[in-house]
Structures are given as structure tokens and as C-alpha cells.
């Protein structure tokens, strides 16, 4: 579905992603794990076109998308949940979700999806008239994920959904991610520092170090890999 070929990107003089190749298949949960500054978020931002691709190619179903603008990429069904949530603080929960469906015109379907999202996160339904900025961290993350779902993506890019959340809430969010993947057949590309949790729900994983992929394999094989255990799982 999504294929990166030797992608390089960065900011100013700094090259953060130094030639990454990876592949995401339909219906999978793929996780990209790595330390701070390894280039995880930059990889995601490059896929969604917010950061420019310096060299290499990105394909979505055999179509090159690295030359397109962000809005074009979103139109093709890739939706990102940016790191640090980035909800609209002065819009209500409902309005935030409406913004997610910005590119769509099928009113009936949007209404259904709204109900579905509210059923995934009942707490959001309770707070639908509350400003996004007044939600707690976990609720904001739920809102960010829900908003991305409202865009009806084929591929959901999640950037550190566990950042700054309590373990119990992290667990809840990961369960929902798994559920979204199963129920809606949404392919998920998950970037995480919390390697343990991410690998628990993922099908395959990539480990990124200093802008390069070092280890790759099925989630189980990564969980049992000695190097990964030492560096990222703290075992």
C-alpha cells in the first residue's frame, strides 16, 4: 500500500531521515520505534507532505505522492495525528470532529461516522460542547485520533499517541487503535517510543536509529530480539 524508497528529509542543514526504505501493507499495524531524535516523527511528516522529501520516492498504490501537497495527500486517504495532539483548543469537541471531515461532502455518512467515533470514546460524547483546550491530556489524544478517523482514512499515521499519558490511559488508547484496525480495516502506521506497548499490538515493526532503519521483522521477533530488548524494552 505505502512504500518508501530511500527517503531523505530534514530541516535546514540537518538531515533527520537519512535514506529510509519501508513498506506498509493493507490492513496491517506497522510500528516504527526508536529513541528521541532518531527521525521517527520526521518520517511521518515526510509521508504526509508537511516536511519536504529531499530525495528518494514515496508510493501510495504505485502512485508517487512525495511531489504532492499535503492537502492532495490527505485527499488520497492518508491522515495524520500529529505529535503532541494538536487539537483546535478553542473549538468544541464537536467542531473539532467536524473539522476532521473537512474534505468530505457525504453528510449522511459523516453523521454515521460521528456516532461511531462517539461510541468508541463515550467520554467525548459527554463533552461534545466543551472546548477542546479544556479537555485532559488523555481526552485530547482521544479527540485527535477521533478527528483523524472522521477523515475516513485508509492509512492512519499516529505519532506517539502515548506521549505524556498515564499507563492506564495508554493501554486504553492502544486497545482502541487495535479495534479501529480490525473493525474498519484501517491500515495503521504507528510511531512510538513506548516500544513494548507498540509491539504488543503491531504486526510488524521497524527500528530506526540516527535516521536509518537498523532492525526489521515481525512484532514477535522484535520483542524477543536481544538488541531491541536491551535498547528499547529495558529488559
Amino acid at each position: 500500500m505505502l512504500k518508501l524508497e530511500n527517503v531523505q528529509s530534514g530541516y535546514g542543514n540537518i538531515l533527520a531521515v537519512k535514506g529510509i526504505s519501508l513498506e506498509v501493507n493493507q490492513g496491517e499495524i506497522i510500528t516504527l520505534i526508536g529513541a528521541n531524535g532518531a527521525g521517527k516523527s520526521t518520517t511521518l511528516l515526510t509521508i504526509s507532505g508537511i516536511v519536504g522529501c529531499r530525495s528518494g520516492r514515496i508510493f501510495l498504490y504505485d502512485e508517487e505522492i512525495h511531489t504532492l501537497g499535503t492537502d492532495e495527500i490527505v485527499k488520497r486517504g492518508i491522515c495524520q495525528v500529529p505529535e503532541g495532539r494538536h487539537i483546535f483548543p478553542e473549538l468544541t469537541v464537536q467542531e473539532n470532529l467536524d473539522m476532521g471531515a473537512f474534505m468530505r461532502n457525504d453528510t449522511q455518512q459523516i453523521k454515521q461516522d460521528l456516532d461511531y467515533v462517539y461510541s468508541l470514546f463515550p467520554i467525548l460524547s459527554e463533552r461534545r460542547n466543551q472546548d477542546g483546550g479544556t479537555l485532559s491530556g488523555g481526552e485530547q489524544q482521544m479527540l485527535a485520533v477521533s478527528r483523524a478517523l472522521m477523515a475516513k482514512p485508509q492509512l492512519l499515521l499516529l505519532d506517539e499517541p502515548s506521549m505524556g499519558l498515564a499507563p492506564l490511559i495508554i493501554k486504553q488508547i492502544f486497545e482502541i487503535i487495535k479495534k479501529i484496525n480490525l473493525e474498519n480495516n484501517v491500515t495503521i502506521f504507528l510511531v512510538e517510543q513506548n516500544a513494548n506497548q507498540a509491539l504488543q499490538i503491531a504486526d510488524r515493526g521497524y527500528v530506526i536509529e540516527n535516521g536509518k532503519i537498523t532492525i526489521t521483522g515481525s512484532a514477535d521477533s522484535l520483542l524477543s530480539n536481544k538488541d531491541v530488548q536491551k535498547a528499547y524494552l529495558g529488559l
Binding site: 485527499k75 491522515c79 467542531e95 473537512f102 474534505m103 478527528r147 477523515a151
Partner: peptide, 21 residues
């Protein structure tokens, strides 16, 4: 109008929603 308000609130999120900034 909605796109403008979203843009005022958060540019990155706005882009992620597919709005041409």
C-alpha cells in the same frame, strides 16, 4: 470560514486535516 478558524487555532493540525494552508 471554518478553515480560517482552524488555521488560526493550529496550523499543523489544519494541514493534517487536508486544508490547503
Amino acid at each position: 470560514g471554518r478553515a480560517w478558524i482552524a488555521l488560526r487555532e493550529d496550523e499543523i493540525a489544519c494541514q493534517a486535516m487536508g486544508i490547503d494552508k
